[in-house]
């Protein structure tokens, strides 16, 4: 089995030990922070840089490997080109920075602002990916669904199927590794029968793919059937009142982490709203 990106890694770091509910909310706070707008370029990059530093610390704490982080960025190269293209095509009406290049014949001017815009979006996208990585690599998927269910519980009043949704999500997550295992097993047995999944003509590869997909579907349906039977045998009733084996209890460091992230959120929100801060260090050209 391949070690995929953002998959839960069973270390015992402080971040791993934080209550999933607190972690989910805290990460959500940080994620919103990433997208606050500021008037001045200086402020934008100063704040984004600060969040980036915080993220580096968090990633270090979850013991995510640098290689993994770099690998997560590898898929972004297409985005880089795409964003640059888009921002170069959108005309800058009130440029802050000098002209980068122009094609006079088409009346097309590109200012350095476009590149900065693209860099900003990229930085923010990257931070979002890393932040999700912090969450998913340090939290068991099942704990995450518990947290989701916990937040959805108040909605039960309006007959929102919180438990059912959480159950569906946790079953789906639970079966990802199982299905992956099935896939690799079926791939191997078809490879022993002379199938090659990586080379060959397209028409041949379509057949190879059906030889993988059909057995995979068959076994997935069989598993779901068995699971449904097993659950019913144990008297599963989605509306039943149930106790839980794993009890989530908030500890002091959960509160510290949550409050810290909430504080970061609060301060940055204030920075973003208050004109004294969000226009800090305006370039002369930015004053209109």
């Amino acid at each position: 089995m391949k070690f995929s990106l953002g998959r839960y890694v069973p270390y015992d770091s402080l971040i791993h030990r934080i209550d999933p509910r607190a972690k989910l909310l805290a990460i959500l706070f940080l994620m919103i922070c990433i997208f606050f707008p500021y008037q001045s370029w200086a402020m934008t990059f100063a704040v984004d840089g600060a969040i980036f530093l915080l993220l580096v610390v968090l990633l270090y704490m979850t013991r995510t490997k640098i290689v993994d982080i770099l690998r997560s960025l590898k898929s972004l190269w297409f985005m880089i080109i795409f964003l640059l293209l888009i921002y170069c095509l959108i005309p800058t009406t009130e440029p802050t920075f000098p002209l980068a290049f122009e094609v006079a014949a088409w009346n097309w001017r590109v200012y350095w602002d476009s590149f900065l815009q693209a860099a900003k979006i990229l930085l923010r996208l990257m931070m979002m990916i890393e932040l999700t990585m912090v969450l998913t690599s340090s939290t068991k998927p099942l704990d995450l669904t518990f947290a989701l269910e916990w937040y959805m519980t108040p909605l039960k009043v309006i007959h929102f199927p919180a438990h059912e949704i959480a159950m569906i999500i946790s079953i789906a997550i639970r079966f990802i590794p199982t299905l992956l295992e099935d896939t690799s097993r079926i791939m191997k047995s078809q490879e022993s029968r002379g199938v090659s999944f990586s080379h060959g003509r397209i028409s041949k590869r379509v057949v190879s793919l059906t030889s993988l997909i059909i057995p995979l579907f068959v076994s997935a349906f069989m598993r779901s059937d068995e699971l449904a039977n097993a659950m019913e045998c144990r008297g599963y009733d989605p509306r039943g009142n149930r106790t839980r084996y794993r009890l989530l209890k908030a500890k002091w460091y959960d509160w510290v982490f949550l409050l810290f992230c909430a504080a970061v959120f609060g301060v940055l929100l204030w920075f973003s709203i208050d004109p004294r801060f969000n226009a800090l260090l305006l370039f002369p050209a930015e004053v209109h």
Partner: peptide, 17 residues
Amino acid sequence: VRGQVGLVFQFPEYQLF
């Protein structure tokens, strides 16, 4: 080599398609 070695996995019935 797979043309010379026939490998029958456990529960091979799952590979029918």
